[in-house]
Amino acid sequence: HNLTITQGKLFFHYNPKLCLSEIHKMEEVSGTKGRQERNDIALKTNGDQASCENELLKFSYIRTSFDKILLRWEPYWPPDFRDLLGFMLFYKEAPYQNVTEFDGQDACGSNSWTVVDIDPPLRSNDPKSQNHPGWLMRGLKPWTQYAIFVKTLVTFSDERRTYGAKSDIIYVQTDATNPSVPLDPISVSNSSSQIILKWKPPSDPNGNITHYLVFWERQAEDSELFELDYCLKGLKLPSRTWSPPFESEDSQKHNQSEYEDSAGECCSCPKTDSQILKELEESSFRKTFEDYLHNVVFVPRKTSSGTGAEDPRPSRKRRSLGDVGNVTVAVPTVAAFPNTSSTSVPTSPEEHRPFEKVVNKESLVISGLRHFTGYRIELQACNQDTPEERCSVAAYVSARTMPEAKADDIVGPVTHEIFENNVVHLMWQEPKEPNGLIVLYEVSYRRYGDEELHLCVSRKHFALERGCRLRGLSPGNYSVRIRATSLAGNGSWTEPTYFYVTDYLDVPSNIA
């Protein structure tokens, strides 16, 4: 807008934040220059609390790290170098490059900038070799853009010569660093050979998330399962459950009422301010606690030095998902009996873990797994792929695949051998790939016309006998059925096997 004052003059007093240069501009645009008398524009009460600059400061050096910015700028000295009290560095987070010096300023003089007072450097006698002032900004957020400017702080001049310097606002972004852990990993099994893994992005990506790394490792069953005799009275049979499938998407929606109208769909109840505040506090606490764990609990591995020492970490090797089922080394339970199943799973520490690289999504279907087997899954978020990966501390989750139908069934015939004193040795093959492992066998036998009897055969007993022995049988026709019990439950009964026990007292003698 054009402003013209045809008559009258300007009068400025007691404006401590208004620089004289701005008042002189007002004289020019209003056409009143030359009308004012000496005392109409006070030299001592206008701009006496402001830094009124008329020179431009330029930054000469900028260096960044993930949490620091090192700045240096060209030296500046007023005509009387004693008038320079120091520099004021202003900075704040700036997602967009549209910041002005006066953003967030209120009537009390406060604003949204963080201000650092910096002492002037030592003055050199040689004007050509003056030290460049600077400042190291610490405690910054990774991968965050900051708006920065600097200006001088000078003393009051009796001659009211307006001098000083100020830089333009520059924008500097800190470097990326390792992201925080992925949030809320959930693993479920939808079949006997697959596990579905879902997660949420890290709360602090500290860069642009480029991919996720998912490692999985087959877990050995508890050692007590191999040692305890679950045929003993009072000892509860062990059981394991597989990871249940995901709930429906509708039930997972946030901010939804727990109660549904019987007449149909209901609208979600909005969260109160107290609920939102509580969630923010919980989120802040979780982030602080995660940072504490990362800094205190997890110790970084030592990389190899120039002395030739090897990095103890196993090298990563990509495998196809079809090879995942046989990740671990199978060892027989008892070496003397080769027909026992290889369900003991000690994992070799030198073995390469299978892994998958996930790009542009937060889910993965891990296939080719062994049925009813526990897996430990390790999830890392990465925001750099080359020249070397920059990934987060791992988040861990466990899951067990679903049982395989008929995996616990005894394959092959049940054979028998009759000894003296009416002892019958029953023999059968253990299931080759049971659900988890076989903890015991149930032997059901009966003599024709009598009630059915049951015998429990422990895992250890089966390994020693290759089956079991029935003792003290009365003469007669017998039928026997056997079924295995694994961590997933009972298998199917075998087809009945028949044998006849004679009275050993009636056996004919070869003595003449």
Rank of each mutant, 00 (worst) to 15 (best):
K233S: 08
A381I: 02
L379H: 01
G264I: 11
Q219T: 02
H371A: 13
E388G: 15
I410P: 06
P413Q: 00
D503Q: 07
N477D: 14
F298W: 04
R459F: 12
I276D: 03
Q380I: 12
Y504F: 05
R370L: 09
T386R: 12
E388I: 01
H371V: 06
R400K: 05
R353T: 02
Q380F: 15
S348R: 15
G374N: 13
F462I: 04
P270T: 13
E362S: 09
R471A: 08
G489D: 04
E356Q: 08
F499T: 01
E465W: 15
G368Y: 06
K287L: 04
H211G: 09
S203N: 13
P332R: 15
Y259R: 08
F289N: 04
S315V: 11
S239P: 13
G325P: 03
S342Q: 03
K432R: 05
C269D: 03
N421M: 12
V299Q: 06
E247N: 14
R390S: 11
V214E: 00
V443T: 02
Y498C: 06
Y375K: 01
H294L: 15
F372P: 00
P354Y: 08
S398V: 13
E442C: 12
P238R: 08
F355M: 11
G207I: 04
E249K: 14
S342D: 09
T497V: 12
G308E: 14
P205W: 06
C266V: 08
T210R: 14
P238L: 08
C266H: 00
T241P: 10
V296E: 06
K271D: 12
V297R: 09
M427S: 11
D506W: 09
L379R: 00
Q275L: 07
T415S: 11
V507T: 07
P332N: 03
S509P: 11
E279T: 10
L470W: 02
S284W: 15
V214M: 09
H461M: 12
I209R: 15
V296C: 15
K236V: 07
N339C: 13
T288I: 15
S341R: 07
R446W: 07
S315H: 10
W216A: 05
R481T: 06
F246W: 03
K432Q: 03
P312A: 09
K460G: 04
C267S: 06
N208Y: 11
D273P: 11
A330R: 15
H371S: 09
I366Y: 01
Y478H: 07
T502Q: 07
I377S: 03
F372T: 03
D311Y: 15
V443M: 06
V501H: 03
L225K: 11
N295L: 05
S509Q: 09
R240H: 07
L379W: 03
P403F: 10
T288C: 14
E433L: 04
H425T: 12
C231K: 02
Y500A: 10
G368L: 08
G234P: 05
N326S: 10
N422G: 08
T497C: 15
K271I: 14
K406M: 04
F215V: 11
L487K: 15
V331M: 07
T485D: 11
F226M: 09
D503A: 05
I276C: 02
S320N: 06
D261T: 13
P205A: 11
H371Y: 10
N339E: 10
G491H: 02
N383Q: 07
G308L: 09
D506Y: 07
F462L: 05
T347Q: 11
V439H: 03
D250S: 13
L379Q: 01
V439K: 10
E420Y: 15
V424K: 00
Y375M: 08
L225W: 12
P312V: 04
L293F: 00
C391K: 11
T343D: 03
L364S: 11
E265R: 13
T303V: 08
F337N: 15
S392N: 02
E495P: 05
D222C: 08
S315Y: 14
A407R: 11
W428F: 09
N360G: 04
L321H: 07
G264R: 10
S344V: 13
K236L: 10
V334L: 13
N208M: 08
Y259P: 14
L440E: 03
E420P: 14
V397L: 14
Q219M: 03
T373R: 05
G234E: 12
N339I: 10
L453V: 06
D506N: 01
W216K: 14
A309D: 15
V423T: 07
V297M: 10
T373S: 11
G306C: 09
G308W: 10
V334K: 12
D222F: 12
T288N: 10
L505Y: 14
I377P: 01
T401I: 12
G322V: 05
G467K: 08
T333A: 14
N326I: 10
G325R: 03
E351L: 13
Y375A: 01
V324G: 04
